[in-house]
């Protein structure tokens, strides 16, 4: 079943047709979400009532567009702040992890590496509740001992950041480690021979080499945090990130406003993905 092996015409047609159907299946839900963002109706469904930009720019009831809808805009802001923090933190820790696993041999390294991978195979909702329990236990303990109520340990943005960080760091570590493994250590030795200190060698030789992986990891971490739902759901307080805010609205019934937000999300993340690909190519 490779091009050099002759196959009957009908087989090739059926196979090609199957692959085409598959890609239709992939495209279908995203296409309808995008198309109905422009429906001039209160519902994102047929019949088609005509084309409108109101779900993006409308400023009067009943068609308030994305750019005039306070709740959604605030949620986007919250998500961006959370995603920014998660991306920075996880890439920083991912860097130190990559160097640790790449440069040092120590007892228990294998076990530590497996432990480092575990967050990927723990269901997101379990990660969420375990962190919720731990922080509440800590907060209650502090209250019992010192009568101090630490709001930061109650459900809220700090816990959301920590919850997402707890598994996104693994992904950042894997991305950066993969690149570091391809690094030629003799380049660093050359820098040392030429009189550089170890830190200077790493800063001027290794870090620039790792740059594409670091930027890739930042973008992936940002996107994963922005789109995370399960872990966030268990840890969220009163400030809802975008996915939670959209979920709450979706439960109450949807208007094309949600389609408009979704379309903008799709455009935003495709743009980011494209940037990474272009950057990696260079």
């Amino acid at each position: 079943m490779i091009p050099t092996i002759p196959q009957s015409r009908s087989f090739r047609l059926v196979y090609g047709g199957y692959v085409l159907l598959f890609f239709l299946y992939l495209a279908l839900p995203l296409t309808v979400v995008a198309v109905f963002a422009f429906n001039d109706s209160q519902f994102p469904s047929l019949p088609w009532q005509g084309f409108t930009w109101n779900w993006f720019f409308g400023d009067s009831d009943p068609q308030i567009g994305v750019f005039h809808e306070r709740g959604i805009l605030r949620a986007v802001g919250t998500s961006a702040i959370v995603a920014g923090c998660v991306a920075m933190l996880s890439v920083a820790v991912g860097m130190t992890n990559a160097f640790l696993f790449n440069r040092y041999e120590f007892r228990g390294k294998g076990a530590l590496y497996v432990l480092m991978l575990l967050p990927l195979v723990i269901p997101g909702i379990v990660l969420g509740i375990s962190i919720l329990i731990a922080s509440s236990t800590l907060a209650n303990g502090v209250w019992d001992v010192a009568q101090l109520d630490i709001q930061a340990l109650r459900p809220g943005l700090l816990l959301v950041v920590l919850g997402q960080f707890s598994f996104i760091t693994t992904i950042a570590t894997l991305v950066i480690t993969a690149r570091l493994q391809k690094f030629d250590r003799t380049l660093e030795d050359a820098a040392l021979n030429l009189g550089a200190t170890r830190l200077t060698a790493v800063r001027t030789i290794t870090i620039p080499f790792l740059m594409p992986a670091m930027i890739g990891a930042v973008v992936v971490a940002f996107l994963m945090s922005f789109e995370n739902f399960n872990t966030t759901l268990m840890l969220v307080g009163s400030d809802a990130p975008l996915t939670i805010a959209m979920f709450d609205r979706l439960k109450e019934g949807s208007t094309p406003l949600l389609n408009a937000v979704s379309l903008l999300l799709m455009l935003g993340s495709s743009l980011l993905a494209l940037l990474v690909i272009l950057f990696q190519r260079r």
Binding site: F23, L26, P29, V33
Partner: peptide, 20 residues
């Protein structure tokens, strides 16, 4: 094309199926 749906939030994908 296979990668694109991954870059879109799961919520959006589910929403698409609801509309369908």
């Amino acid at each position: 094309f296979c990668l694109i749906p991954f870059y879109v939030s799961e919520l959006v994908r589910t929403f698409g199926w609801m509309i369908l």
